[in-house]
């Protein structure tokens, strides 16, 4: 018994010593690599930025060690990518990224670890390395798990306007949020192609409508308005929300339909839109909605009253004379509350 325990203890001790040596060595190596990368980066930063921006024709010498060179280039181009000003800058970044990184990225996509592959996909998108589009597409079709690697591959393909993506959107079930991530990256032609598709799932339609509201581009407005009477409630609500962002509706009369709706979200968006557009003809309805059974409708109605040209008077009237206690409370809150969002 004692011998067994001693053996086990010895094993624990040995494991611990191995672990300690491994950690110390890898920590030292990590610190050394980081330092040499940071040193090389600071050395080439200014001359290389001058070269990238076209101020200098002479390409500065990069570190001879391949790993350091790749890390320096990634750090350099990441900073550069977030400050790009025009097509020329973009072009030079793409050319440089292709020259130093594309071969390495091809290898990583085939043989790298999960984290390396995901990082590479982030960089491919950031540096708009569209020469790797086919490689990313091939890689995408080999993926089994719907994790970050899967999502980032799709984002890259969306950025490059991959044609097969539209078919994929019609067939696969994605969340609306993720669909919007893809839409934000798609070129204008892909969006027009998508609008022509008739058999799109609800999540894609709501994603499109919501995204169009976000952009505020008038070329998408008819598509949004055409869906405010859609039979699907979610699509109707997204259209109303998008119109609030557009701050526009072709026919203000159609709002009464929503202000009287049995669906509280429609009453809320109706009230919000009436306020945004300062439609005084709905003031009486809004006053009634200030006493709605739903908190959000009450909030939207009082907020809308506040936005009217004589908003302060209306709100004071609601705060003091509304028959409903909740309406009075809400109006009082809106009188003192400064509406604001975080930044």
């Amino acid at each position: 018994m004692v011998t067994v325990v001693l053996w086990i203890s010895g094993t624990f001790l040995l494991l611990q010593i191995i672990l300690l040596i491994y950690l110390s060595l890898s920590k030292q190596k990590g610190i050394r690599n980081d330092n040499s990368m940071i040193h090389a980066y600071h050395q080439v930063l200014n001359p290389y930025l001058a070269f990238l921006s076209g101020e200098s024709d002479q390409e500065p010498e990069l570190p001879s060690d391949e790993k350091t060179r790749i890390r320096v280039m990634e750090k350099l181009l990441s900073g550069y990518a977030s400050n790009i000003k025009g097509a020329g800058d973009q072009q030079r970044m793409q050319v440089t990224a292709d020259k130093y990184l594309s071969e390495y990225y091809r290898t990583v996509l085939k043989k790298g670890s999960w984290a390396e592959r995901v990082n590479t996909l982030y960089y491919i998108e950031d540096f708009t390395m569209n020469t790797l589009q086919t490689d990313v597409k091939k890689h995408f079709f080999t993926l089994q798990n719907r994790d970050e690697e899967y999502r980032q591959s799709l984002r890259v393909l969306a950025r490059f306007g991959e044609k097969e993506l539209i078919q994929l959107l019609s067939e696969e079930l994605f969340s609306m949020g993720f669909i919007k991530e893809l839409l934000r990256r798609m070129p204008a032609e892909s969006l027009e192609d998508l609008k022509k598709e008739e058999s799109l799932p609800e999540s894609v339609k709501t994603g499109m409508i919501s995204y169009f509201g976000e952009t505020g581009y008038y070329e998408h407005l008819p598509y949004v308005e055409q869906h405010i009477t859609h039979k699907d409630k979610e699509i109707r609500l997204k259209s109303l929300a998008a119109l609030c962002q557009y701050r526009y509706i072709s026919s203000a009369d159609s709002l009464s339909l929503f202000l009287d709706s049995a669906v509280w979200e429609e009453r809320m968006f109706g009230a919000r839109l009436a306020g945004i557009l300062q439609l005084t003809r709905y003031s009486t309805t809004l006053m009634k909605l200030a006493g709605d059974s739903n908190w959000w409708v009450r909030f939207a109605a009082c907020e809308a009253l506040k936005q009217m040209p004589d908003g302060e008077i209306l709100l004071t009237f609601a705060a003091e004379g509304h028959e409903d206690l909740y309406a009075r409370e809400m109006a009082r809150q809106l009188q003192t509350l400064k509406t604001g969002v975080s930044g």
Partner: peptide, 20 residues
């Protein structure tokens, strides 16, 4: 171990700018 070398900043970049 799997996420050991993941670029954490790039990993959250999307949601930091996403209006949704």
């Amino acid at each position: 171990k799997k996420e050991r070398q993941l670029n954490r900043e790039a990993h959250i970049e999307e949601i930091s700018m996403n209006k949704d």
